[in-house]
């Protein structure tokens, strides 16, 4: 029987959750016994070729490209997991939700104390994905099956959740592994 496939992605996140995932250390050897990888920054595959059992999503949705990737994950994964505080609640990127888009862009590209931008313009290349009005947690964009909180979730939490999901066991996380920070 073929191994279940796992896909991962980082949307509006900092890759901290992926770093935490790699913190499973030598358990990575068990992991390769247990699963195969679909698209993921870990193997640099960009596209789905077949269905994946589990999709781990880091980061919320800040722009149209995040939404596109998240929808693609929803389409190709049986179980979709929001991994980390940005995916579950918006997190640090969502701090921009407290100011207007205009204010935010002006600060970032024109008026911020460390900005060097002789053109004085906000980047507007067509290649750049459009920003959403607000940064959204993943479950406000597609259906999410599980939320794994933490900033980042500890390697132990990710390991426990992933092992349970690929073996159809109930996820049981002890109190110490549920954290928002």
């Amino acid at each position: 029987m073929s191994k279940p496939k796992v896909a991962t992605c980082s949307l509006a996140g900092c890759f901290g959750c992926h770093m935490s995932f790699l913190d499973i250390d030598e358990r990575i050897l068990q992991l390769v016994e247990l699963v195969d990888f679909g698209p993921s920054p870990i193997n640099d595959l960009k596209h789905f070729t077949d269905r994946c059992r589990v999709g781990l999503v880091e980061g919320g949705c800040a722009n149209a490209e995040n939404v596109r990737v998240l929808r693609e994950f929803r389409t190709h994964c049986d179980i979709l997991v929001s991994m980390g505080y940005c995916a579950t609640s918006g997190g640090i990127p969502a701090m921009r939700n407290l100011v207007s888009m205009e204010e935010c862009l002006r600060e970032a590209y024109m008026e911020g104390p460390s900005v060097h931008n002789p053109t004085g313009r906000v980047p507007g290349d067509l290649e750049l994905p459009l920003l959403l009005d607000k940064v959204r947690p993943c479950h406000e964009v597609v259906k999410i099956d599980y939320h794994l909180p933490g900033c980042p979730p500890s390697a132990d939490a990710i390991w426990a959740a992933l092992c349970a999901l690929v073996s159809d066991a109930p996820i049981e996380l002890p109190y110490q592994l549920i954290k928002y920070d």
């Binding site: 505080y85 997190g91 640090i92 969502a94 939700n97 947690p137 928002y180 920070d181």
Partner: peptide
């Protein structure tokens, strides 16, 4: 607006602690 990851009170906050106790993941 609760950004627990950067909040000074995180770990000592009663609202967050209740959420943990109740198993609220989001």
């Amino acid at each position: 607006n609760h950004f627990c990851p950067s909040c000074e009170k995180s770990g000592d906050c009663e609202l967050q602690a209740l959420a943990y106790r109740m198993g609220i993941s989001a």
